[in-house]
């Protein structure tokens, strides 16, 4: 790396994506066995496996930059050391909320990895090129279901709309700027949260335009931020406790 500062900026970026993937992967896995239909049960389980595996690949990159081993980083930190946005830690709620979150979040992730495919940090660029291919399936899945259920019945539309209203302020927190925004952009590591937000906004609205759903109003003041700085809702710590139950009982256990 060129300088100390660049490395801090890069690590912060890697942590925010890796932590998002780990936590959302864990949330998705909560659908295993209780999905509303078999295919959706499998889809959410499969995406959970993808996301947790992708977080591992990012924690490996962090490990190569001098951070601790992936298992230690994933299981031994407290909530205030996590850089994920608050959106991903919210409970799964009803299927309609999980679907809306999957739609809003995964489109941002797909666009993020597309941007990072050109990162000046080559190990991240290589991994991102790979992940874009995999995430095409996640966004295809999300958009298909949103288009179907968002035009289906009065009940499906009103339930999705109310989840969308609830999710929007949290989804804005995905794009909470990094303290190193300028360094990331100047060094060509990442094109920045603001640009990502604008791309995401146009994609999400284009798809919602084909449904009866709409984003009524967006007030950036209401954005649920703080997650990137370690400020979380009351839902994160219990999730971490559950995730690390085995390793804390017996750090040498294999599972």
């Amino acid at each position: 790396m060129d300088s100390h500062l660049n490395e801090l900026a890069l690590k912060e970026l890697l942590y925010r994506i890796a932590d998002d993937l780990l936590i959302l992967g864990h949330r998705n896995s909560e659908w295993t066995g209780i999905g509303p239909l078999l295919e959706e049960d499998i889809a959410f389980s499969s995406m959970a496996q993808d996301k947790i595996g992708q977080s591992l690949a990012l924690y490996e990159l962090l490990h190569q930059l001098g951070e601790r081993e992936p298992d230690v980083v994933a299981f031994m930190r407290n909530a205030d050391q996590f850089h994920n946005c608050q959106f991903v830690e919210l409970p799964i709620g009803g299927y309609e909320f999980s679907l809306i979150r999957h739609f809003l979040y995964d489109h941002s992730l797909f666009l993020r990895f597309q941007a990072l495919s050109n990162s000046s940090y080559e190990p991240l660029a290589a991994l991102s090129r790979k992940l874009v291919g995999e995430l095409r399936y996640h966004v295809l899945h999300a958009s298909t279901f949103i288009k179907q259920l968002g035009t289906a019945t009065e009940e499906s539309i009103s339930r999705l709309q109310s989840s969308l209203n609830e999710a929007i302020p949290y989804s804005l927190g995905i794009f909470e700027p990094s303290p190193y925004e300028k360094e990331l952009i100047d060094d060509g590591i990442f094109s920045g949260e603001q640009e990502l937000f604008h791309q995401w906004w146009s994609v999400v609205n284009e798809i919602l335009g084909k449904t009866a759903l709409e984003i009524s109003q967006v007030d950036q003041e209401l954005a649920k931020t703080g997650g990137r700085l370690g400020q979380h809702t009351e839902h994160l710590q219990p999730l971490l406790d559950e995730m690390s139950e085995v390793i804390k009982l017996d750090p040498s256990a294999e599972w």
């Binding site: 295919e39 499998i42 889809a43 399936y137 899945h141």
Partner: peptide, 13 residues
Amino acid sequence: LNTPFGPTLCRSM
């Protein structure tokens, strides 16, 4: 296509 997600990550149904 029934679903792009199958019994393993690399399979669709």
